[in-house]
Simulated assay, not measured.
Amino acid sequence: MSTTAKALEIARDDGLVELVGRGIDRSIRPIDPLYQVLKPSFRTYSVGDTTASFSTTTRSLRQYDFVDDMRSERDLITAVLDDVEPDDVFYDIGANVGIYTCLVADKLESGQVVAFEPHPEMFDVLQRNADQNDVSGSLQNVALSDHDGTVAMVSRGYTGHQLVSTRDETTLTVETTRADSLVEDGEIPVPDVCKIDIEGAEYLALSGLEETLRNSDCRVVYCEIHTEKIADIGGSPDRVEAFLRDLGFEIEVLGERRDNYFIRATRSS
């Protein structure tokens, strides 16, 4: 996307104040090292009645990808929070730095979050954010897939890491597991609500979650379907939707982002 097009998108979505703020950010980049010393360790964000604080220690705040995610996914975050009940078990599959993990945890009372993030650097930030927000639950440094083992992952920025079929010097090796294996072994409970955002590996993760999703307690699955990446990793958008329908879910398309789209799958009555 060109600089002009990005500016127009920001002005449309957030207004001129945000656009001017981005311009100021660019102008002060030369003094960013000083800012890194003086900035707060965490910054607080709210969505509706929920609030969480997120680490700013790894990169300058405005360069953090999760700041853009807070803006672009606010409607989706709101929808997820509306579906979560205080005593629910919430799976955050592809937790990254923990936006959903921490905001959902703020709404929970007796419930808990189970967050999955395979990238080691992102997992460290996730752990930091979870500790800051007193998240109750379990953090899993694994990639959910259709088998237990390992897989190659390539990292493209803070939110662009994805599984790949070949290994070379640009990839790292991460552990994979079936969620069904963890549930069967009693390591994690059955979820009530799931959110899946794993850069094209959604069909593989769902395949390893099949028996768990058959449990009637699991009533809602949110999933971002990456229409191009999924073909390279395994599966297809049609297979994802058919898989969920075969398990008794009804599919609703919530919106699009670039070549991807979001679905909400709810348990049929």
Rank of each mutant, 00 (worst) to 15 (best):
residue 29 R to K: 15
residue 5 A to M: 04
residue 74 R to C: 00
residue 185 D to F: 06
residue 165 S to D: 15
residue 48 G to M: 11
residue 143 A to W: 05
residue 215 N to E: 14
residue 248 G to M: 06
residue 224 E to A: 10
residue 57 T to M: 09
residue 201 A to I: 12
residue 93 I to V: 15
residue 94 G to Y: 04
residue 235 G to D: 09
residue 184 E to H: 11
residue 36 Q to C: 10
residue 145 S to F: 14
residue 211 E to Q: 10
residue 213 L to S: 05
residue 110 S to M: 01
residue 24 I to L: 14
residue 32 D to L: 02
residue 150 T to F: 09
residue 267 R to S: 11
residue 101 T to I: 03
residue 60 S to K: 10
residue 224 E to M: 13
residue 158 Y to K: 01
residue 196 I to P: 03
residue 93 I to N: 03
residue 210 E to K: 15
residue 24 I to E: 07
residue 248 G to D: 08
residue 113 V to T: 05
residue 120 P to V: 13
residue 161 H to D: 06
residue 161 H to V: 00
residue 27 S to Q: 14
residue 151 V to P: 00
residue 264 R to A: 07
residue 259 D to C: 07
residue 119 H to I: 08
residue 196 I to G: 02
residue 150 T to W: 04
residue 246 D to P: 01
residue 138 S to W: 06
residue 187 E to Y: 12
residue 173 T to H: 02
residue 39 K to M: 09
residue 44 T to R: 11
residue 96 N to M: 04
residue 235 G to K: 08
residue 241 E to H: 06
residue 56 T to C: 15
residue 163 L to S: 11
residue 33 P to V: 03
residue 193 V to N: 08
residue 174 V to A: 02
residue 247 L to Y: 10
residue 178 R to I: 14
residue 247 L to E: 08
residue 88 D to S: 13
residue 121 E to C: 01
residue 207 S to Y: 04
residue 167 R to I: 09
residue 227 T to C: 13
residue 255 G to H: 03
residue 223 C to Y: 10
residue 94 G to N: 06
residue 172 L to R: 02
residue 245 R to M: 12
residue 96 N to Y: 01
residue 129 N to M: 00
residue 263 I to T: 07
residue 239 R to W: 03
residue 257 R to K: 15
residue 23 G to M: 15
residue 70 M to P: 02
residue 235 G to W: 12
residue 145 S to W: 11
residue 224 E to L: 13
residue 30 P to G: 05
residue 182 L to Q: 11
residue 46 S to Q: 14
residue 236 S to N: 10
residue 151 V to D: 01
residue 124 D to F: 02
residue 53 S to T: 03
residue 98 G to T: 00
residue 140 Q to C: 13
residue 173 T to V: 13
residue 153 M to W: 04
residue 106 D to I: 05
residue 226 H to P: 13
residue 177 T to M: 13
residue 121 E to H: 05
residue 105 A to K: 00
residue 120 P to E: 13
residue 100 Y to I: 05
residue 139 L to H: 07
residue 101 T to G: 09
residue 202 E to V: 11
residue 229 K to P: 01
residue 264 R to T: 04
residue 107 K to L: 12
residue 72 S to E: 11
residue 69 D to P: 00
residue 67 V to H: 08
residue 234 G to E: 12
residue 32 D to V: 06
residue 102 C to I: 00
residue 82 D to W: 02
residue 181 S to G: 12
residue 93 I to W: 06
residue 124 D to L: 09
residue 176 T to I: 08
residue 198 I to A: 08
residue 14 D to Y: 13
residue 11 A to K: 11
residue 235 G to L: 10
residue 56 T to G: 09
residue 203 Y to Q: 14
residue 212 T to E: 07
residue 159 T to F: 05
residue 62 R to Y: 10
residue 238 D to G: 14
residue 28 I to L: 10
residue 11 A to W: 06
residue 117 E to R: 03
residue 131 D to V: 07
residue 98 G to C: 01
residue 13 D to I: 03
residue 217 D to R: 15
residue 8 L to M: 11
residue 163 L to D: 04
residue 2 S to A: 09
residue 19 L to M: 04
residue 2 S to Y: 04
residue 76 L to W: 12
residue 129 N to L: 00
residue 44 T to E: 12
residue 84 V to W: 06
residue 183 V to A: 07
